[in-house]
Design a protein around this nucleic acid. Structure first.
Length: 195
DNA sequence: GCAGGGATGAACT
DNA sequence: GTTCATCCCTGCA
């Protein structure tokens, strides 16, 4: 079983994986961008879908690490997570925002799917990036080391500054600083609260 | 049966 | 800056 991708060991705690994913390039069917915002979730804290144990909806998070967990939010939007920890634990990282790759074909495809021209808003939110990439329920529980997924390591020549802060859109465990962003990125779903 | 959600975009003040 | 309707499925009573 492959648990290390793009230099990241997905069997590590989700907050570790979440911070290391900032700067990694995510491609889905050849379309995507650099990850600039993530959030960590774990079965031990009540904001997580896996809090309270495995259900038919969240079973993928209890499976092997380095796989996908896709769920629908508010009946409208899809959200993409990467599974972490060991089999049976229940942990994952929500991919919240991408900086779109400057590839003309990819940009055109994402703009068409989003019916939106503004590059800054193409992938600046978990539901938005799934719409731009074409991720839906059929992509739940897939191996991240194989197509349609491709993960490329950070560019070692480019230093990335990662900031941590409280997560967005949750009502429980709001104090945990498990949101991670690239400092100064224009492509965040919301600006990081100034420290 | 029903309350609520890891969100978004439009319509407001 | 803020509120608000929207969509559908899940989980628990």
């Amino acid at each position: 079983m492959i648990t290390t991708l793009a230099g990241i060991d997905f069997s590590a705690p989700s907050e570790v994986v979440a911070s290391q994913l900032i700067g990694v390039t995510l491609l889905f069917n050849g379309v995507g961008g650099r990850i600039v915002e993530t959030e960590a979730y774990d079965r031990e804290e009540p904001a997580s879908h896996c809090y309270g144990g495995e259900t038919p909806r969240n079973f993928a998070m209890f499976g092997a690490p380095a796989r996908s967990y896709v769920y629908q939010s508010h009946g409208i939007h899809w959200c993409l997570n990467f599974v972490c920890r060991e089999v049976g634990h229940g942990a994952g990282v929500l991919i919240r925002a991408l900086e779109p790759l400057p590839d003309p074909d990819g940009l055109a495809l994402m703009r068409a799917r989003r019916k939106l021209h503004d590059q800054r808003l193409l992938c600046s939110g978990p539901g938005r990036l799934c719409q731009a990439l074409g991720v839906t329920r059929t992509h739940n529980n897939l191996v991240l080391s194989e197509p349609p997924f491709v993960l490329l390591p950070r560019d070692p020549a480019h230093a990335v500054t990662v900031l941590a802060g409280p997560r967005i859109g949750i009502s429980k465990a709001v104090e945990l600083p498990w949101r991670f962003v690239e400092a100064g990125s224009r492509f965040l779903s919301k600006p990081m609260r100034s420290a």
